[in-house]
């Protein structure tokens, strides 16, 4: 029969191709290893560390790093090594949840404004522009002071502050997609707007949303640490890194560098790791 296809069976799936590219990128692999390390620490850290991170030892305060206390002790004599390892837990709970909230909400807003255009789009987009003009950290800070700091409010504050940025990214991706003929084809078979947005358009813009997700996690980690440092984020006795730096930074002048350095390194390594993952993903999806 005319044109009956004789070619060989379909080749590998596109997603597989992306994974293959990722597996070949040293930067992505290094980033993923760092992130995985901290995730494992936050899941099992408490059971693995040699010394209870909350146990004060008033006889051994501010000991320098030694064979017993690898990273030294803080002013309550708590083991810094254990606290750094366990300190990953809270930040790795709060930051991803805040990001999920922001990306989820932002995606929903971006889909609706990009798909419908018109008056809703104009209103929401101007609102987004207005919010973006405000310094985010200060807004989050004020919100937390007003609401009182807790894990929940930190998630809410950071999540909501991310929403407009994500909404704008998603909206521009939707604008490009909605002009494609498959969207017209869906309308011509009587699909509802909701179906078109979620089932037709969304799967095609998962790439940029995924990248946004990883980039935002990096920012969220930074923001959580900053808020904790400022005293409105995670609360004592959490071994959180930002909080620890805030408690101990006054001691640097006295030569007690270990009380701050390892926490700072931990934050840095996690943020670098997340960003390497984000870059790797973006590169792989761009290919």
């Amino acid at each position: 029969m005319s044109g009956v296809a004789l070619g060989e069976a379909p080749v590998r799936a596109p997603r597989w191709e992306t994974l293959r590219l990722l597996a070949r990128s040293p930067a992505f692999l290094a980033g993923a290893a760092i992130v995985l390390f901290w995730v494992l620490c936050s899941l099992f850290g408490e059971r693995l560390v040699p010394i209870d991170p909350y146990a004060a030892d008033l006889l051994g305060t501010l000991d320098p790093p030694s064979a017993e206390h690898w990273f030294g002790t803080d002013q309550l004599g708590r083991d810094m090594f254990s606290r750094v390892i366990v300190g990953a837990r809270d930040i790795l709970t709060v930051a991803p949840l805040a990001t999920l909230l922001g990306v989820g909400l932002g995606t929903a807003i971006g889909l609706v404004t990009g798909y419908f255009r018109g008056i809703i789009d104009n209103l929401v987009s101007r609102l987004v522009d207005a919010v973006l003009a405000l310094p985010l950290l200060i807004v989050a800070l004020m919100a937390l002071v007003a609401l009182g700091p807790s894990n929940g409010t930190v998630i809410l504050a950071i999540g909501l502050s991310f929403t407009p940025i994500v909404a704008r990214t998603v909206r521009s991706a939707v604008l490009a997609e909605r002009e494609l003929d498959y969207v017209a084809a869906a309308r011509l078979r009587g699909e509802s707007s909701g179906h078109i947005m979620v089932m037709e358009i969304l799967p095609n813009i998962l790439g940029p949303i995924f990248v946004e997700l990883t980039v935002r996690v990096g920012y969220a980690i930074f923001t959580v640490a900053t808020l904790s440092f400022l005293g409105v984020g995670l609360q004592p006795p959490s071994p959180d890194w930002g909080l620890a730096i805030s408690e101990n930074y006054g001691l640097i002048g006295g030569g007690y560098w270990w009380a701050v350095l390892f926490d700072a390194l931990a934050i840095t390594s996690l943020v670098v790791g997340v960003n390497l993952v984000a870059d790797g993903l973006q590169n792989a999806l761009d290919q």
């Binding site: 869906a186 011509l188 037709e200 799967p203």
Partner: peptide
């Protein structure tokens, strides 16, 4: 629905007309 069914289209560019995620 009957009128929707009655009228269909084949687009010029199948790359744009078929949802690449499906």
């Amino acid at each position: 629905p009957a009128q929707i069914k009655a009228l269909q289209i084949v687009f010029q560019n199948p790359d744009s007309a078929l949802n690449r995620a499906h």
